[in-house]
Design a protein around this nucleic acid. Structure first.
Lengths: 131, 131
DNA sequence: ATAAATGCAAATGCTTTGCCCAAGT
DNA sequence: ACTTGGGCAAAGCATTTGCATTTAT
């Protein structure tokens, strides 16, 4: 399935995510849309997000818990709070040289990802350390 | 649940994973154990792997598909084949300086992970590119 | 008109949990 | 003896899918 038809719900879903920097889950997007009175189903949210990712308009992020989606497709890095699980964008510039590494005979490298882990400001303030 | 009692099945599960470098899933471990005639349940494999990870004897790896487990707990990096999904260890030494980065006010960094993506030798040979 | 997309609900994959029995210290 | 851990089957969550209906082109 590619994006052949720019339907009502695809437009809504895209509008809902395109400027977000908080890497929402499908469920979060769905809840937001419904709160705004949009008539979409969760299945369509999933189908659309996956399709957009396949088209290169979105990036899928995997980790503990549900998948998250990132509308920022330019190469960049992430930070994951080990307390709340939220993902933040990292300002450190993408290191192109890391895509040039030799990992061994026959290995083809197309990209790399760096994810820092730690505690975000909000969780640090709440003092709830994850022991 | 911590590892208080070193039971039969915990010993078996630990033996089954401790020297592996192929980052097996719980299911894969379970199948291997059963093939060898071990009397363990999949639930116990999951419970044990999670417990071992909590104790710091194992690392949990998240990605598309089921979780994978890595008995190598010294800091190191990974490569993920985008065709077969397998994870390989990367020989490039851990960059301690990346744990010293300043991500912003209030952010506490405890570690980082780098995952390279591309095509592994086996899949490259089969010529099955993931387009 | 035709092919593609949606909604719904059922199905699926992975993982966790409750409960009662077995086993470790 | 006193717990902790295991098995089993059920429950749980995240996600996908089949199918009849709607909608974009």
């Amino acid at each position: 399935m590619s994006i052949n038809r720019w339907t009502q719900q695809r437009r809504l879903i895209w509008e809902a995510i395109k400027d977000r920097t908080d890497h929402p889950t499908a469920e979060e997007l769905y809840q937001g849309l419904r709160r705004d009175g949009a008539r979409v189903s969760l299945a369509t949210v999933y189908r659309t997000l996956r399709a957009l990712a396949r088209e290169g308009l979105l990036r899928e992020l995997h980790g503990p818990g549900p998948d998250r989606f990132d509308p920022n497709t330019s190469p960049h890095y992430h930070f994951r709070c080990r307390v709340c699980g939220r993902i933040f964008d990292v300002e450190i510039p993408y290191k192109d040289e890391l895509d040039q590494v030799e990992l061994g005979p026959g290995f083809i490298v197309t990209s790399h990802a760096i994810v820092w882990e730690g505690i975000c400001p909000a969780c640090r303030e709440k003092g709830r350390d994850a022991a």
